[in-house]
């Protein structure tokens, strides 16, 4: 239960949503998408935190003794976060490549002018 992390991730998500909803430059929109993803990642990894726990890695000595006295943080959210970071990177890459192609075709990356499909 780390309140600070939760609040920070909510703030990041809201900032990201604000960026996507108001900024006109398409690259800023992509940045906003990225910020939303980072906020969500932080939220996930914070959920796994156990106060006083260490890294979730067994050492050989613990396993040989049979009984583990270690108390560690939840490893599953860390796995989820890694997957999510990769997905976020892919989204950013694909979005930016689309922005490059849009610039070549439309000669502008202002969202108000990239709107040939409407109505």
């Amino acid at each position: 239960m780390i309140i600070v992390n939760y609040i920070a991730s909510i703030i990041l998500i809201v900032l990201g949503l604000y960026t996507v909803c108001t900024k006109k430059n398409l690259i800023k929109v992509v940045l906003g998408l990225g910020i939303i993803d980072y906020g969500v990642n932080m939220l996930i990894v914070s959920f796994g935190f156990n106060d006083g726990g260490t890294a979730p890695i067994y050492q050989m000595s613990d396993l040989l003794n049979g009984v583990s006295t270690k108390f560690f943080v939840d490893p599953v959210p860390q796995a989820l976060t890694l997957t999510s970071i990769v997905i976020g990177a892919c989204v950013d890459a694909m979005a930016l490549s689309l922005v490059i192609m849009i610039y070549r075709k439309y000669k502008t990356i202002n969202a108000d002018e990239v709107r040939r499909l409407n109505g």
């Binding site: 929109v29 993803d37 969500v40 996930i44 959210p77 989820l80 689309l98 499909l117």
Partner: peptide, 26 residues
Amino acid sequence: LEGAFKYLVIGSMGSSFTLTGIALLY
């Protein structure tokens, strides 16, 4: 390209919402 970009932005936002929900559920 424009259609794909809009699809990506809205779709990615939707996925982020889903992921937040899944995180809360976890």
